[in-house]
Write a protein that binds this DNA or RNA. Structure first.
Lengths: 219, 219
DNA sequence: GCTCAAATTTAGATTAATCTAAAAATAATT
DNA sequence: AATTATTTTTAGATTAATCTAAATTTGAGC
């Protein structure tokens, strides 16, 4: 029952866009997510529906079936386990692993993933702070808030980002704002949408737009 | 300059069939190697020729250009490094890693391969005993002879196999004839094409056909 | 050197994934 | 509710990789 890369990518996109389990996702939303045309999405939705991986109604939208959800979650699991491997074992930086994991997640072998999981010590979170589903598709949610929500005086640790864009991650790296860094809020101004914080005893300015995409575990 | 999986597989096949560097490989030989039709091969040879990865003359055959050779050797390097990882780090058996490495070798990232190589300690040989090209495409040849060539009384170590078929490798595993095992020849009969040897103080019978595919480093 | 068999290439189709442009359905606005 | 705007689907093409069947070239044997 091997799926093509394209089919797998569509399933992942639908999972990502389904906030709650059986959210109905629109054709256009999927097209935007995958940077493709709405017409292509329609074609693929029909195919995935035939394979009973999604339920789909013309002009209405799509949602994952149980089987589709299982498949998509497995892909997320693979993606995040590979990211852990790339960072932890190979010493790559968290801003360069996403694209490689995007390819690695399509490698077909359940046994490989089980062994990789075992080798890595069954990690619960990936280098971006996102939870890794276990072999049964269950995962723990971590208490996390956007940096932008913190008040002056509050402290915490960087545990993830919401954006996957390489350029964004690189930007953070350059600022010294890497995973695991402890931070303390100095000011968080609602008016000019700007935030000052302390990282490694250095003062740093961030735009509200950026701060909204950085996830913090308060301490 | 990203090549498709298909293009990469053709280059690898041509490299495998080119005993010496600029051997000319026939269309049919490639078709047999890749289990595809001769017509498909012709189509692809034209394309690879356009990309200057092979030199190709209608009805005559193909051989790799420098660039094609470099690309194909890189693929072999990736394949073998991944096999080392799967066996050494993940504890998989040498008979199950080939197919997975066949997928992993197509992952695009030079940096990934360099880091993997580093992580594994720059291994010179893969679990089948085949040499791993370095980043410059050079590799050491190991002194090795087919088991079938050994004379009674000779001893050696299993360092590889010539066949990549999973079923064949599984067969050897079942017999206890795994990589690194020390063996000693008892008889090697030219008439009935049968060979008796000692592995772990156990006597074992092998057909000449099988023995010809097992590589030994004499001690 | 001719003939015939084998090897190789061409011709014409097929499948998967994609595109643009046009048509149809749904939703929003007055 | 009628009209307009947005979203989604259909229609028709395109590209990559493949196939089968027919045509062509090569070269081996007489």
């Amino acid at each position: 029952m091997g799926l093509s890369y394209a089919e797998e990518n569509y399933l992942k996109a639908i999972l990502k866009l389904s906030g709650s389990p059986d959210w109905i996702v629109s054709t256009n939303a999927i097209a935007a997510q995958l940077e493709t045309s709405a017409a292509s999405v329609t074609d693929m939705l029909k195919k995935l529906s035939d394979k009973e991986l999604i339920t789909y109604q013309r002009y209405k939208g799509a949602s994952l079936t149980h089987e589709g959800q299982r498949t998509a979650t497995t892909l997320v699991r693979k993606h995040r386990l590979w990211e852990v491997f790339l960072v932890q074992s190979l010493g790559m930086t968290w801003d360069e692993v996403h694209e490689i994991a995007e390819e690695l997640e399509h490698i077909q072998s359940d046994r490989l993933i089980d062994r990789l999981d075992n080798f890595l010590g069954h990690p619960k979170f990936d280098p971006h702070g996102d939870p890794i589903p276990n072999a049964q598709g269950k995962y723990t949610l971590r208490a996390q808030v956007p940096l932008s929500d913190l008040k002056p005086g509050q402290e915490g640790v960087v545990i993830g980002v919401k954006e996957d864009e390489t350029s964004f991650l690189k930007h953070l790296n350059d600022k010294g704002l890497t995973l695991g860094k402890s931070i303390k809020i100095l000011t968080n101004d609602d008016y000019d949408n700007t935030l000052r914080l302390l990282v490694d005893d250095l003062e740093l300015n961030l735009a509200g737009k950026v701060a909204r995409n950085i996830m913090i575990k308060p301490t």
